[in-house]
């Protein structure tokens, strides 16, 4: 079994798959002077299976059996089992063994009392909420800034101011998409009205200088590499109104509560998508011309787009001016 004697008749394998264990087994058996039939009886296997193994003909047997037969055969002949199986694997292809991976050690102490289910449930619910928030934010496009200062309370403030203004010609707004701030707008108007009227002037001491300066500084700075002829959208407020403006690429340029007298200049790529919490109170100018603002019912939010896409600048789908 160790020496390789003269070339046998079965060495003439032209396709040359790797040699199987059959040759080794046959030589070991012949070296020991054992008869195939006797061995077959000892191993309780049909002689034709042993013959097939010696011919490296593994047939249609599942590998589990083939390996087992080879193992018992090799053991009976006094051969080392591992080389035989290795030759079989080379011949028949790998029978991928499961990888043994060692896990990292973890804290050992586990109390034996009851687990605090409530705490875990709370934690999981919180985690789910955070995940959902992240999911929705992340899904709506790349965000320029990490987070604005407390956006949710702002829309609630607009609602008291929505009531007084002139009743406009009611052109109903088709509420196609339920927006994020909508529930807040119609949600808690009365409770916050007194707070809003008193808190707004106190906390926002600089609406006037800002209006005069028309500084774009509070608006997000223009994108680092936008097309050069950026368009300016001017928003003038006669009364407090929640305003959101997104440009063609979905960047949020304005997301703020504008106060009476505020003028906000927005630089970006048209078309802009504008959302006004109090449409009657906001005048929108684009390219120096006044853009008609669709009138909604009092207290209703309107959405519309302004501007036509530039040929090169805006690959986003164009939204014509008018309510959407």
């Amino acid at each position: 079994m160790v020496e390789r004697p003269d070339s046998n008749r079965e060495n003439a394998d032209p396709v040359a798959p790797p040699p199987g264990p059959g040759e080794r087994l046959r030589r070991a058996r012949e070296g020991a002077g054992l008869d195939l039939d006797r061995l077959a009886a000892e191993l309780h296997l049909p002689a034709r299976i042993l013959e097939a193994l010696e011919r490296d003909d593994f047939g249609s047997l599942p590998p589990t059996y083939t390996q087992g037969y080879l193992r018992s055969y090799a053991k009976r002949l006094g051969l080392a089992v591992d080389p035989v199986l290795a030759e079989y694997h080379r011949r028949a292809g790998p029978v991928e063994p499961p990888p043994m991976t060692a896990p990292a050690p973890s804290p050992a102490q586990v109390g034996l009392g009851r687990t605090r289910h409530g705490l875990y449930v709370l934690f999981v619910v919180l985690a789910a909420a955070v995940f959902l928030a992240w999911w929705f934010r992340g899904g709506s496009g790349p965000r320029p800034a990490a987070s604005r200062s407390s956006p949710p309370p702002a829309p609630a403030v607009t609602s008291p101011q929505t009531a007084p203004p002139i009743p406009p010609a009611p052109t109903p707004v088709p509420a196609a998409r339920p927006p994020l701030p909508r529930p807040a707008v119609s949600g808690a108007p009365k409770a916050s009205s007194s707070i809003a009227s008193s808190a707004a002037p106190a906390e926002q001491p600089a609406p006037v200088p800002r209006a005069g300066a028309t500084a774009p500084s509070s608006a997000p700075s223009p994108a680092p590499a936008p097309p050069p002829p950026a368009d300016v959208l001017v928003l003038r407020c006669d009364a407090d109104s929640w305003v959101e403006v997104r440009d063609a690429r979905g960047r949020r340029l304005v997301y703020d509560l504008l106060h009476a007298g505020d003028v906000r200049r927005v630089v970006g790529t048209p078309p802009f998508r504008v959302l006004l919490g109090n449409p009657a109170a906001v005048r929108v100018e684009w390219d120096g011309r006044r853009v008609p603002v669709p009138r909604g019912a009092p207290g209703k939010v309107v959405r519309f787009s302004v501007g036509t896409p530039r040929a090169a600048a805006a690959p986003a789908p164009a939204g014509g001016p008018g309510p959407r």
Partner: peptide, 21 residues
């Protein structure tokens, strides 16, 4: 053990690869 079962039952007995897992 395979040998014992083989002798007792007269059937071929094979040990699976990596029997523990």
């Amino acid at each position: 053990l395979d040998r014992l079962l083989m002798e007792e039952t007269g059937l071929p007995v094979v040990v699976a690869e990596d029997p523990l897992t």
